[in-house]
């Protein structure tokens, strides 16, 4: 039972994280405004909510531009998800983009970031500006709701742990490879190979799930993005590793050459992945000027669940590697017995 605890732990963590990922409700949010730009003068906007119950509230609607608030002078609730609001927009708003805010009594204040473009800029409005809605923090446990993500934010607990697990397995492969250079132990060579195999499985799952998710949010199966380029290079490197192994017949030589390539490629890949986001824009949170787990991406309350998912999947990956490694050991022992 002693060697089993971490496997139970991994499965438990994945189970808890998955249940949380699928069952946690989505926070109510404002997801769309019918107008893309606000011109000075009266503007009528239809606001679309998600998981909201506007009919049970008496919502107040605001536009925020550079810290200045404009309250809607006419608000009409159409149904639980739709409100029509009229704004008298003053001249001279100073920022490019305005946010839309809907303040409710029980669901707090919801904000649609950069809802409107402001075509005519000034140095700040002088009239028609009011106090903003009260800052209310939601205290319930919910996924944040973003207008391009909706329910698909739940993928966070499935897609991202794949990459973490892949990186862990590649690091294990690196350790095995360094050991091969030192000792020439054939078992460690097989361990490195097994770790690369399992890491490629997780890379494949990460790529496929990422591709699906990207199609649903960004509109393309593959986007030219720093993180995607990093992933592609990683997969190419480890496929090249397998090709290199396939082209050498002598086992001892194969082990050594593969280990050298693994160490060399791993270090350069690491530098690449660290440097790349600084060079290119990215759609992913946390890079290229995008906020990481802040603002609208992940509530603090959900962060432990996310880490549970990462740890759990790492455990599952290690378990798969453990099985492969033990199998390799049996194969080697078996080959030895036969040759004698």
């Amino acid at each position: 039972m002693k060697q089993w605890w971490w496997k139970f732990l991994a499965v438990g963590l994945v189970l808890i994280a998955s249940i949380a990922a699928l069952r946690t409700p989505l926070a109510p949010a404002v997801v769309h405004a019918s107008e893309g730009a606000l011109k000075p003068g009266p503007n009528t906007v239809t606001v679309l909510g998600y998981a909201t119950r506007f009919t049970q509230e008496s919502p107040r609607v605001f536009v925020e531009n550079g810290g200045q608030f404009i309250a809607a002078d006419q608000v009409e609730v159409l149904d639980d998800r739709r409100i029509t609001a009229r704004f008298l927009v003053p001249e001279g708003l100073r920022e490019d983009m305005s946010d839309l805010l809907v303040s409710t009594t029980t669901q707090g204040t919801m904000r649609l970031f950069d809802a409107f473009y402001n075509p005519e800029k000034g140095s700040g409005a002088l009239e028609g500006v009011t106090e903003g809605p009260p800052r209310t923090e939601r205290t319930d446990f919910a996924f944040p709701n973003r207008n391009i993500l909706y329910e698909s934010i739940r993928n966070l607990h499935f897609h991202v742990p794949m990459w973490f697990t892949m990186m862990l397995l590649q690091t294990i492969a690196l350790v095995f490879s360094i050991s091969v250079l030192g000792s020439g132990n054939p078992l460690h060579d097989r361990g490195a190979l097994a770790a690369v195999h399992v890491s490629l499985l997780f890379a494949g799952m990460g790529l496929l799930t990422g591709s699906l998710w990207a199609r649903a949010t960004w509109g393309g199966w593959w986007t030219s993005d720093a993180k995607l380029n990093g992933a592609a290079v990683t997969v190419l490197i480890y496929l090249a590793y397998l090709v290199l192994r396939g082209s050498v017949n002598d086992p001892a030589k194969r082990a050594r050459l593969a280990a050298i390539y693994n160490v060399f490629a791993y270090v350069l890949m690491l530098l690449f992945i660290m440097a790349l986001p600084r060079m290119t824009a990215s759609l992913h949170p946390g890079s290229g000027g995008n906020p990481a787990f802040s603002q609208y991406d992940l509530d603090d309350s959900l962060r432990p669940v996310f880490y549970a998912a990462v740890l759990g999947w790492m455990g599952i990956g290690t378990w798969l590697l453990n099985l492969q490694y033990r199998l390799a050991r049996i194969e080697i022992a078996h080959d030895h017995a036969h040759h004698r």
Partner: peptide, 14 residues
């Protein structure tokens, strides 16, 4: 259904 099907697809892939 509010993009929940993307989650279904992702879980199936895994």
């Amino acid at each position: 259904s509010g993009k929940i099907n993307t989650v279904v697809a992702v879980v199936s892939v895994i």
